[in-house]
Amino acid sequence: MNPMALWKKLTDKYGFPKVCISLMLAIFFIGAFMQKQDVAAMLADSTVRIAMNGILVLAMVPSIVSGTGLNFGLSLGIITGLLAGCIAIELDMRGMSAFLWAVVMSIPLSAIMGYAYGWILNKVKGDEMTVGTYLGFSVVSLMSIGWLLLPFKSPEMIWAIGGAGLRTTIALSGRYAKVLDDLFAIPFFGSKLPTGAVLFFALFCLLMWLFLKSKTGVAMAAAGDNPKFAAASGINVNRQRMIGTVISTVLGGIGMLVYAQSFGFLQLYQAPLMMPFAATAAVLIGGASARKATIAHVVSGTILFQALLTVSLPVINAAMNVGNLSEIIRIIVSNGVILYALTKVGGGH
């Protein structure tokens, strides 16, 4: 088979972004070997990043499947996750129980937030992605005031001088940093593989897979594929979209907590602003579109995207030591992928 035919076959089967990113990743890995970098550490780091971002990416599935498109308003769920994380510290909880309680507390908060979000999305059918993006931006800005005003008292979290309002970055060391990553961690050539976090991600993938096979999940997929068909089959389309949005927001909250425990900090204020974009980029690289997404898209997309980011940084820095070039590459890749995907959606209609 000649190279052009092979290229066409691959891009037809896996989609253009997936093939391109895979190639880039392969080139970076070869580069890393040639530069004699610590490839094992890179792999371990990649695994950490995959596990820490996975659930945020998974949150895209219910929103896409229910027909509201990519959830650019995921920052809403991220904020409720952060809030739950702060409450766990305020209650002076520590370790795994602090993390799990934060997860449990985030669920009702996210559900309420998701319900309000879903209500708005049902009013703006056809423009969910645009409205979601700006709604996310608005709520992030609004919560920037909220973080200052919320009556948290824990000295670990409030500004040291003055004593009112939460800090921009709250360290989780001594609280629940790395509780999942260190759970059943496996040594790997001097690094550690975060078994617990990977298992946690896998558990949620399994739950999502089961949900999509349930009666409600099937109805949701029908509402997303063809709302007219669903309505004619007696399925309440708005309700299915609402369910999809609520689940997506809840997963956003949980995903944020997983991210935070791995990262070791809660980042408030403007930090959640751009997080949905990384998640959308990952699921799109995995081969999803604004109308179709599967667990396989999530897993493969997260692996490719996060591995690329992890590997590209040291390789590019070693090749051309110019400031933050790798960061620029990361922004070009993630925004480029989103742009590409949106051109394929036809404006969300």
Binding site: F229, S233, R291
Partner: peptide, 29 residues
């Protein structure tokens, strides 16, 4: 039961498998 005149608009889930198209309404209702 109704077989719509607008086959592609109302009658089918175009990106869903034949088996789920056939079973969908009976399953839900």
């Amino acid at each position: 039961a109704f077989v719509s005149e607008d086959r592609r608009g109302v009658g089918l889930l175009l990106d869903t498998s034949i088996e789920y198209n056939i079973a969908m309404t009976a399953m839900q209702i």
